[in-house]
Write a protein that binds this DNA or RNA. Structure first.
Lengths: 209, 209
DNA sequence: GTGTCGATGTATCGGCGCGATACATCGGCA
DNA sequence: TGCCGATGTATCGCGCCGATACATCGACAC
């Protein structure tokens, strides 16, 4: 799971750990708390060991894209800059495409969804529908409790169930819209995504800082 | 965290592991997935070791006399019924009252909230406000991203942020209502908690809503 | 100049809790 | 009679978190 997230971020641009974590926080922080360093660094080392990422020895990456007035930070120091390898990119695509059961769980879904711009349309649809199914099951479970066993629960527990049910219903509706959007071809925004190989989203943004 | 949840369920009635997990699922399953057996049984053993729960005598099983020379070598497992001890009840109240930082996290909050009917009003208010603060921070973070960095994100990531923001805004509103409800004394339901002789009005945070 | 304070940056350690798995009993039902 | 699914207890590996420890750097004070 972290593998996918880290590869995805490094796919956009080489980065060192600290920065990586911040990017990760805004990218997938919606459904999942920020990644802990206790997870990040060991994972980085593991990914490096299997050859999916490598230590890039360059700060001069920042020199390449013009127009980037490198914001305050990012100066030279003994930082370790990681970049994704060719093998890592392959593996990233594999991980994106394969949707196991945990893909439909909160965290897994969040990570996959965050990289939808790089995912092929068929997989997107599969994941959205799997997630919808998951949330629908949860919704039905909550409805059952509220209909069948409401009188056995105290008011607070009941209120918690209601709030959870509301959230589940909303997410299902949200997913419905996204699915309809996918089917009609109009993906939400500027990402028509044709071609199976190496599609990059609006990579015009330097992505620094 | 699991300690609190298990003590809370066993506080209502003695139970064996399998049943306990099912109860737990409906009680706190809203904000948290069902507890795994890989967590449940070790925790039960730990709680038993420190004396907060004890094995209750499974009476109906003992209906057959002790002349059970039937089991050859395989240790026949019976169902183990656990019940909370007096010390466990004390500890439960302590855990309920103490609200550390993880109390305001998704899972921690869910567990605490599920037992609000057993929590004193002052603590309820404290926890609700702490949670609200937490969710507000998250909401502000998402707003910042959407206002300041929207153009650097692809459409899917953006959509994820929007959905997260919507959920955060809803939860804040939900919490506001609960807080108002608490303050006005009309707690939602059959747990007025009036027995407390000296409830201090606890003139609370200047932040009102 | 130097003190120390907050942000940046890398790294480890203990432990919680999950998912998979194993094993055992019991009631249907074909 | 034999299979199957629900009930029930238990363990193991490991992913990830939270706390913690260091070290450097710019800034502002004194």
């Amino acid at each position: 799971m972290l593998d996918l997230a880290i590869l995805g971020i490094l796919h956009e641009s080489p980065m060192h750990g600290y920065e990586l974590r911040k990017q990760l926080a805004v990218k997938i922080g919606t459904l999942r708390a920020a990644i802990s360093y206790g997870s990040l660094y060991p994972t980085l080392r593991k990914l490096q060991a299997v050859g999916w990422i490598a230590e890039g020895d360059a700060e001069d990456e920042s020199a390449a894209p013009a127009g980037t007035e490198v914001p305050p930070m990012t100066s030279r120091r003994g930082r370790v800059v990681y970049k994704i390898t060719a093998e890592g990119k392959e593996r990233f695509q594999e991980l994106l495409a394969q949707a196991g059961p945990e893909t439909f769980e909160d965290q897994g879904f969040g990570v996959h969804f965050a990289f939808f711009a790089r995912t092929d349309p068929a997989t997107r649809l599969r994941i959205l529908e799997g997630r919808r199914r998951k949330v629908e099951e949860r919704r039905e479970g909550l409805r059952d409790v509220l209909n069948r066993a409401a009188e056995r629960l105290d008011a607070y527990t009941l209120e918690l169930q209601r709030h959870g049910l509301d959230a589940a219903e909303r997410e299902v509706r949200w997913l419905e819209e996204l699915i309809a959007s996918e089917r009609s071809g109009r993906t939400p925004g500027p990402a028509p995504q044709v071609g199976t190989t190496d599609m990059k989203p609006r990579s015009d943004t330097p992505e620094r800082s």
